[in-house]
Amino acid sequence: MKYNKEIMSVFGLIVCASLWGIGFPAMKAVATLPTFYMIAVRFAVAAMVLGILFFKQLKFTSKILIKNALILSLLNFSLYIFDTIGIKYTSSAKASFFSCLGFLIIPILNLIIYKQKFTKITTISVSICLTGIIFLSYSPDMGFKLALGDIICIGGSVLGSLYIIYLDRISQKGENSNPILLSTFMMFFTCLWSTSVAWFHHDFTVMPSRINLYILIFIGLFCTCIAFLLQTICQKYVPSNRVGIIFAIEPTSGAFLSILLLNEKMSSVGILGGILVIGSLLYQEIMSNKIHKEDGDTLQA
């Protein structure tokens, strides 16, 4: 039963990562809007939808849930500042990759903070994925060089990794017993922080076009509400190091959708990098499932 939950959770995290990938070309399409305005609207939509759908569950709110939601919201808010600003100074395709270096950062942070050693599978998978990211940083005019937006997006990756690690820890402690409420309050607090800053900067004097408003609602509903809810529910059953590898599918979907929808260009070297990133994910999943199967056969024997 636990193994089946893990398989379903992996699938849920892949859907989550794919939705976030779609968010990159969507954010690029509305990149002319003020940064904090964009963050406020997307999380307002997400918090409102979850609040309406699961209003009756608010009676189960606890102090520890509020505390965890506050911490996650601050990490999340900081992450989206980096990502939303970074995408203004690089292509959507490259932003999607450099915002998602959790596959590399999470194992390193776990090693530093919790003395959690790399497994052989993680080491090989991270090596393949890192090679892919290096190839993706290549452009014909700049070679293997990072743009300002790339560096800002890498900062977002560090914050995103801390978010995943913290969510993993509270799940292991049993403090993530109500993932729907946790997601709802996290989104509400993120909306609160971004709305406050947007109000201070007078961002709400900007009136978005109808198409931009539709795109923001789409981002809020699918790339925020559904995606974060899936992450909070599914990550309870998948270790954080493995989650980082699974989320490597996010930049790949973001890059290819940016090419398809925004007519952005990617070199053959960059395409090879994307293939390597997907290959690292497949290797991680195939080998992890093989180990699970062998362990199950041993127990049955």
Rank of each mutant, 00 (worst) to 15 (best):
I291Q: 14
R42S: 10
G254F: 05
T35G: 00
Q231R: 00
V197E: 07
D295Q: 15
G156L: 11
A93C: 06
I14Y: 09
V269H: 04
T224G: 13
R210E: 15
F54R: 06
S157K: 10
L281W: 01
L182S: 08
A227V: 01
F222Q: 09
K56Q: 06
L33G: 14
T119L: 03
I112T: 03
Q172H: 04
L72W: 06
E175D: 05
I39V: 14
L148S: 03
I152S: 13
S127D: 13
I211C: 02
K28N: 12
E175Y: 03
K173Q: 12
S280V: 03
I275S: 07
I215M: 10
F135M: 10
S62H: 06
L111G: 11
F82Q: 08
I14N: 14
G86N: 11
I113S: 05
V158P: 04
S209V: 02
I108E: 08
L257T: 05
L260S: 08
L229C: 07
S268L: 08
I52A: 14
V30M: 09
F222C: 10
V10M: 12
L162F: 08
V41H: 12
A198F: 01
E285Q: 07
D295I: 04
G132C: 03
T123F: 09
L130E: 10
S96T: 04
L53Q: 08
L74H: 01
F135H: 02
S62Y: 04
E264V: 01
F43D: 07
P140G: 15
Y3H: 11
Y166A: 08
T190Q: 13
Y283F: 13
G12E: 15
R210G: 05
L216A: 11
C153T: 02
S92P: 00
F103S: 09
F218Q: 08
I219V: 11
L70K: 01
G155L: 02
L181W: 04
L216R: 11
N68T: 00
I52L: 15
I113K: 00
L216T: 06
I278D: 15
M266Y: 07
L221R: 12
K115I: 01
E175Q: 03
K117I: 02
G270L: 02
F43N: 15
G143S: 06
